[in-house]
Structure formats: structure tokens, C-alpha cells
């Protein structure tokens, strides 16, 4: 297990740059199995906006980001300039953490970092190449596409089944009876 984790850490760091489009509101109840890359956010000074990037305009130098949950959800506009770090992570649909300071009463982005997914305890990351190898070698596993059904219809991995994340009842009905069977989940990424 330890060896496997070590092998995945470089990928996880890489994946953290790619990851988005996935709801990342699952919080692990244990930190034991979790790679420690997410701690870098704690080193940040000052206030941050954390949420999904709605859009970015390079001409107006503005990022809009949706922060807060459910009833408290709101979109805020943050300015940026050429000195803002990590602008590549402020792409529409991606989860981002924007550190900002107030300038003339307007929030101004200083550093932007990708918002990392937190995996549930015991769940490990798998790369596309590894999934491809499993498919090509006819290994017995269930590949689940967690995106909305229309996204699945348009383009899905070979052999994947569509179980959108909100259909929990359906998910449980469609999962195999054997609890030790390999399940692989995937969803959208950067658009």
C-alpha cells in the first residue's frame, strides 16, 4: 500500500492541476490515507475565495468565482493583473482558491491555486493510462461515469456505465453485489 501511494504522489500533484468539474465537497473523515499536498493552502496569508470559477476575462482583467454553499452561494468578482500568480488555474468550471487583497475597495487576486479534491478514506487515484491497461487486458471491474447523463451520451470511456452523481439510489442498485470488486469512478476535468 505504501509503495502504491508513493508511486501515485507525483501523479496526484499533476492531477491536482487538471482536476475540475468534479464536486469536491466530500471531506475525508481521516487524514491517514490522504496525500499531504493540500496543506500548502494553509501557508497562505490573508483572505481567500474558495469555489468554482464562473469565468475569466483577460481583457477586463476580472475573474468571477462562485463562493459559499447552497443558500449562501454568491458570485464575487476579483480583479487581477500580470503579477497575479497561477492565473492558469482560473479557468471556467475549475475549482480554485484565490488569495486576494483589497485595493481601492476592490478585491485583487494575488495568488490562485487549484482547489484539490479530497478522496474518501481508502480510495486511491488511478491514471488514464492505468485505466486503459485494465480495459485492454479485459480485467473485471466496473467503470462508472459520474457526470450528468448528457455528457456521458456525447463522449464516454469504453465500457463505462452512466450513473450521475445525484442518483445515489440508482448508484447503489447498479453496483455489483461483490463488495471487493474493483470500482473506478471518473468525471469531467478541465474544459
Amino acid at each position: 500500500m505504501k509503495k502504491t501511494m508513493t508511486r501515485f504522489i507525483p501523479f496526484f500533484i499533476m492531477a491536482s492541476f487538471l482536476v475540475t468539474g468534479c464536486n469536491q465537497n466530500i471531506k475525508s473523515t481521516t487524514t491517514a490515507a490522504k496525500p499531504s499536498v493540500s496543506t500548502e493552502a494553509k501557508k497562505d496569508q490573508g483572505p481567500v475565495y474558495k469555489g468554482k470559477v464562473v469565468g475569466k476575462s483577460n481583457k477586463a482583467k476580472q475573474i468571477s468565482i462562485e463562493v459559499g454553499k447552497d443558500k449562501d452561494a454568491k458570485t464575487v468578482m476579483v480583479s487581477f493583473d500580470d503579477k497575479t500568480k497561477g492565473l492558469e488555474y482560473a479557468a471556467a468550471g475549475e475549482g480554485a482558491i484565490i488569495a486576494y487583497e483589497m485595493r481601492d475597495g476592490v478585491p485583487f487576486a494575488t495568488v490562485i491555486k487549484p482547489k484539490l479534491a479530497t478522496l474518501p478514506p481508502g480510495v486511491t487515484v488511478i491514471t488514464p493510462t492505468e485505466v486503459k491497461t485494465l480495459i485492454d487486458s479485459n480485467k473485471d471491474f466496473l467503470l462508472v461515469d459520474s457526470r450528468p447523463g448528457n455528457r456521458y451520451s456525447a463522449s464516454h470511456l469504453p465500457g463505462a456505465v452512466s450513473i450521475p452523481v445525484c442518483e445515489m439510489q440508482e448508484l447503489l442498485q447498479n453496483l455489483p453485489k461483490e463488495k471487493d470488486k474493483l470500482l473506478i469512478f471518473y468525471c469531467g476535468g478541465p474544459t
Binding site: 492531477a15 482536476v19 479534491a117 481508502g122 488514464p128 470511456l157 453496483l175 463488495k179
Partner: peptide, 14 residues
């Protein structure tokens, strides 16, 4: 379920 993995990079990376 005991044997779960996630392809975090998603369909675009595939």
C-alpha cells in the same frame, strides 16, 4: 465497497 479508485484527471485527460 472496499476496492475503489478514482480517475481524478477525468474524461478530458483520457
Amino acid at each position: 465497497y472496499k476496492n475503489i479508485r478514482v480517475m481524478l484527471a477525468g474524461e478530458p485527460a483520457w
